[in-house]
Design a protein around this nucleic acid. Structure first.
Lengths: 338, 338
DNA sequence: AACGTCAGTCGAATCGATTCGACTGGGTTC
DNA sequence: GAACCCAGTCGAATCGATTCGACTGACGTT
């Protein structure tokens, strides 16, 4: 195992000199630097992360907390994990994936052991115990998504502007002539948990409908396939029937499309379908007009926010980034009576 | 920042005694142990990971190498990342997510810096440079998936038995009466890369078809939507036309289903569709008969293999786990002429 | 020639936990 | 009562890099 001493001996200098060559924090003559560099290459030296971390009290590692209900998997979490890993690496940090079902215990352990310097939290709930635990330890954090309402000392967060996104979907539909529009909102349990995106998305759709004078038929989604089919059938067999369906709860999208087909309706001729908050690069959503969840931008913003906090930029608590929605490239919203 | 010295002072013992209480590696009297425990709780002490790692030369961290083509995202990677994180934690390890596009550089850095003790490699290619790099550093590793052929000193791996899986799909179709079966194999570029699952899956399907006397029509898939539609249309408009379609390339599944519908064929009445290697818990696949990729079991096996290597169990190189396929719970394969 | 300056380098302390050998005092043995 | 043993605890060395103060010559100044 090659250490800084081996390099120093090999180059004929003191260990501290090697360290200064590596960090560049003191002037070193060109010859010495060259000799040290050569020794490093020849011996294949790489500093021990643990020794450096111990001394500097900085690990250059971030932790991503993915809340996990055993047996359940949300595709969006995996997607964010990859993108956040990419971004962290670009800023010089490695990413630790924390999939503790509890979350508080795992995060506390990582924070107190100094394994990571900061945390990105996915799927933050209102009054999330993880946020409280991290604050108690003064551990830098950034949130992906934000709760119902934020207090002054909440960690910084990034989120899609769900109200604007739903509103945009409504306006796009109205713009091509739809007057009776169905909004397929988040699932019951998401409203029960007072998830920010669920509440804000629905509110945004309703506000936009009021402003444009269109009639909005709202249904909450559910994870129960039978109930889902029944609710959708009820909406789509009403007379007069909505000519557009805006879908925010995308997990059961294939089921919805299947039920639409089973009711004898063709998309988009009989029913325009618009997606709100779909993941990029997924095959089914790409066939439809949609507002995508900007995973890449959100990942970047979240990592930047926590890195700022770690590296002690000016006060960042209360800082946040609300991303404006836009229609993704793809098919336009179809006009009614097509 | 609470250290072991603070705990020792608070409990009126030496730091080494605190360490022994924590590790249990020496006898400690009940009173002393209780006093130390109390001090730890009271002060909220947690050992510094860096100090422990420095001393023990063991970090209790594994690294997951996810190869990454910039801008591309494979849902299967995110899914494995979460499950591997779960399993690692159960065995006492944290998981570092490495999404370096290069892979070799990132892994080398992690290995030589002692940031992690072992690696799990996703999407291993034949003669993968990452495997060579890790071997050079004597870094423990386990692979998810395996290459075309393995040499004696390859790292241990885990994989679905793709030949058996494809064979099982063929036999299931034959068992309910299908005689003319189409096999939608992996994409061109996967064969070009000589990916193990692509080669073995196809070979397994062909062998099972020969053995059962059924006629097998093979087409390779592609990522180009237009070419995909054309190839599928050609297969499904042939006379006589196949009555079953076995799909191994699942990424464009929605496109395939759409094209099938566009050709006026109903699933499963006109065409039985069977999936080979679908991800668990995804909505579209669950509506069809299928052989799932056992992500959980594979994650468990991969982590166990690398942990065995890290903890220096007997020689594990060449060790591996080939998982037998089975039909997932769900709709049965439909009979032809239904 | 004496002194100050400065670039470049070195030595030693330090981060916090682990671990080995050594020590202590109460109990056992003959 | 001397010799021995053992359970339980302590002290000090150690892991490898960083960083601060101090040192050394070479050079410039007067």
């Amino acid at each position: 195992m090659v250490t800084i001493k081996d390099v120093a001996r090999h180059a004929g200098v003191a260990p501290s000199t090697v360290s200064y060559v590596l960090s560049g924090s003191r002037k070193i003559s060109d010859e010495t630097r060259a000799a040290v560099r050569a020794a490093i290459d020849e011996l294949g030296y790489h500093p021990r992360a643990s020794a450096r971390t111990l001394r500097r009290a900085r690990s250059e590692v971030l932790v991503l907390a993915v809340p996990r209900e055993p047996g359940k998997y949300r595709a969006v979490d995996g997607r964010f994990a990859i993108d956040i890993g990419d971004t962290a690496r670009e800023l010089g940090y490695d990413l630790l994936l924390m999939t503790d079902p509890d979350g508080v215990r795992g995060l506390t352990r990582v924070a107190r052991s100094g394994l990571a310097d900061g945390a990105v939290l996915m799927a933050v709930r209102e009054r999330d115990p993880r946020v409280a635990a991290l604050r108690k330890h003064g551990f830098p954090a950034a949130l992906v998504g934000h709760g119902d309402e934020s207090e002054g000392d909440d960690p910084p967060w990034v989120d899609l502007d769900w109200a604007a996104a739903a509103g945009l979907a409504v306006r796009e539909a109205v713009a091509v002539g739809h007057r009776r529009i169905a909004y397929w909102a988040s699932a019951d349990h998401e409203f029960a948990a007072r998830n920010g995106y669920a509440l804000r998305g629905l509110a945004g759709a309703e506000a936009a409908a009021r402003a444009s004078g269109a009639e909005l038929v709202v249904r909450r989604s559910t994870v129960d396939p039978e109930a889902l089919r029944a609710r959708l059938a009820e909406v789509l067999t009403a007379r007069p029937r909505p000519t557009a369906l805006l879908v925010q709860h995308l997990i059961p999208l294939p089921l919805l499309l299947e039920e639409i087909a089973a009711l004898g309706l063709r998309v988009p001729d009989d029913l325009a379908v618009v997606l709100v908050g779909s993941l990029p690069d997924e095959a089914v959503p790409r066939m439809l007009p949609r507002i995508e969840l900007p995973v890449g931008r959100m990942a970047q913003a979240a990592v930047r926010l926590v890195v700022d906090a770690v590296e002690g930029a000016e006060r960042t608590a209360g800082d946040h980034e609300l991303i404006a929605p836009r229609m993704a490239d793809g098919p336009p919203v179809a006009a009614p009576d097509g």
